[in-house]
Design a protein around this nucleic acid. Structure first.
Lengths: 123, 123
DNA sequence: AAACTTACCTAGCAATACAACGTATAGTGT
DNA sequence: ACACTATACGTTGTATTGCTAGGTAAGTTT
């Protein structure tokens, strides 16, 4: 019989809270400059709580391209493997702005909800 | 040939951004009082941007109970159908506090990310 | 030429949210 | 007695997401 952890994924909910926000984070990281895949990944690790794996970022980038929110350009040289640089399209820029506006309201709601839970004494 | 909307679900990403946060919102709504299913749903509609359907709330409540985060009590009278009241357990209270702490940091990250996107002129 | 590094990509799986249904109890109208 | 409505709880199937665990490709180092 295998000792199988039943509810022993104490940070499962952490993963779930991040769902959907990666798309916004990636679009936001491309606002001012073109970046390539792994570079985006590193920006997210440094600047946010959104630590992700490669297998997470690339599918999202493919999706964004399929939706016409970003466009790509291969660049050779500089490094071993050629890099695929991603750039926001105008549609991507609009989407990023719309998501940011929605997110702003959403964050306000959540802030109000969790305020009482953050009071000292609640552990 | 069918006229099929390709990327015409303009608010699909809205749904995705909410993923995972309902659990926190529900736990938070139960902090001070016991509520029953539909009452929780109405609180969320009034107090937050988290407009949800019944088919969304009940499975989550079942999950929370299975995890031991809430406990239930049937109450008859008052209304037609007996109501199932949900109450936080001590484990649920701890979880709510932990999620709130994590969420607080997460909200900060997202705020920093989207700040440039909210500047006027971005539409 | 073998090993390492950087970079990109692709199944298959688990978890979530939702629409659309179904069930149960009580009250109201005729 | 019968249909109708309102309230409340529950379930099934589908679409979407993110992740683990692999694989491919190009160039540099030893």
């Amino acid at each position: 019989m295998v000792t199988k952890p039943e509810t022993d994924q104490p940070d499962n909910w952490e993963r779930q809270l991040k769902k959907g926000w990666l798309e916004l984070a990636i679009l936001a990281s491309l606002r001012d400059e073109s970046l390539y895949g792994l570079e985006i990944l590193r920006r997210l690790e440094e600047g946010t709580d959104l630590v992700v794996a490669e297998g997470t970022v690339y599918p999202i980038l493919s999706r964004l391209k399929a939706e016409g929110l970003v466009e790509t350009k291969w660049v050779e040289g500089e490094a071993g493997h050629p890099r695929k640089y991603y750039r926001l399209t105008s549609a991507g820029r609009s989407r990023a702005a719309a998501m940011a506006r929605y997110a702003s309201g959403f964050l306000g709601s959540i802030s109000r909800i969790i305020a009482p839970l953050l009071a000292k004494g609640e552990k």
